[in-house]
Computed example of a mutant assay.
Amino acid sequence: MPDGALLNRYWDSRDTPRDESWAEDVATAREATGRSAAEVYRDLRSGAESGWDFSSRWFDDPQNIATLHTTEIVPVDLNSLLWTLERTIAAHCRALAERACVRDFDRRAGARKRAMNRYLWSVSERRFGDWDRRTGRMTSSVSAAGLYPLFTGWANRSQARDTARQTEAVLIAPGGLRTTALTTGQQWDAPNGWAPLQWVAISGLDRYGHRATAETIGTRWLGTVDRVYRETGKMLEKYDVEQQRPGGGGEYPLQDGFGWTNGVTRVLLDRYPDVVSETAPTAP
């Protein structure tokens, strides 16, 4: 980072088209202006490694995938998870009385938290977000990734309160939590909602006492999953949380099943047992 602090980004060591999307990547590189094909390929690969393949989080122009620059973005969710990993390693070392290891990973976690507060929290906008290394400032993308500091527990109470307010104002849709605030045709943007992000948001908000907001997301998501299941007899990879129907967008057809949808739905049914009736779904 500009002051020498260390945070992490997504990076792929290869700069060739993805094997599974070769033609698509070649076409994207042709559309990119002022950049080498190798640079575009690396950013596409890194975006796929992020799990958010693809999202306007990585784009200069939210409507144009050829403007992605994943490797220049410092993501709030990735660094939140790495902070948790460093803390977990320190805790295990403490249990084993490995003092040098404890000091090392406590130091790493402390330094990361200070850097995240400096670069991944906007005092003026009162929100968490991603940092663009080229522009030297936080990106304009408002996304569910901003709830990871609550999920992992490094946010303070004031930050959590502001995050809950923004979530209520921008990200909560009729059928659950939007992935981002923008509709772009990419699958990791609105109107899609994804089960793991619902759980991140619900768990994080609940951790800081924002239980009503967490419940709104959870019950609306269950309503969407239940509605689509009754109509199709399927659990799906992603959902349109605006219209409460199967999700879409991205590079490949919507996938049936998916363990994360099943798992999150199961735990939310335990948490909010009165949302879904016991009436059996109609077979498709």
Rank of each mutant, 00 (worst) to 15 (best):
G263L: 11
T67C: 02
A37Y: 02
L147T: 03
V264D: 00
A195S: 04
T183P: 03
E278W: 15
T179H: 03
E125K: 13
H92R: 15
G223F: 10
R57F: 00
T216N: 13
T16D: 02
R42P: 10
E86D: 11
T261Y: 02
T216M: 11
Y252C: 05
L182Y: 04
W131E: 04
R30P: 03
A5P: 11
R127V: 06
V170I: 11
W131L: 03
P196H: 01
S56M: 02
N117F: 01
A144I: 09
T232M: 03
T70S: 04
S46R: 02
R137W: 09
R133M: 06
Q255R: 15
S143P: 05
E49R: 13
S36R: 09
G250P: 12
R42H: 08
A27Q: 08
H69R: 11
A115D: 14
V76S: 10
R112Y: 13
W52G: 07
Y148N: 12
A283L: 10
Y10L: 03
P174H: 07
G4N: 12
W194Q: 02
V264T: 06
R245I: 10
N79F: 00
P246R: 14
S277L: 11
L82P: 04
T184F: 14
T183H: 08
D189C: 08
M235T: 15
H92N: 13
R99F: 09
E231R: 09
A212D: 06
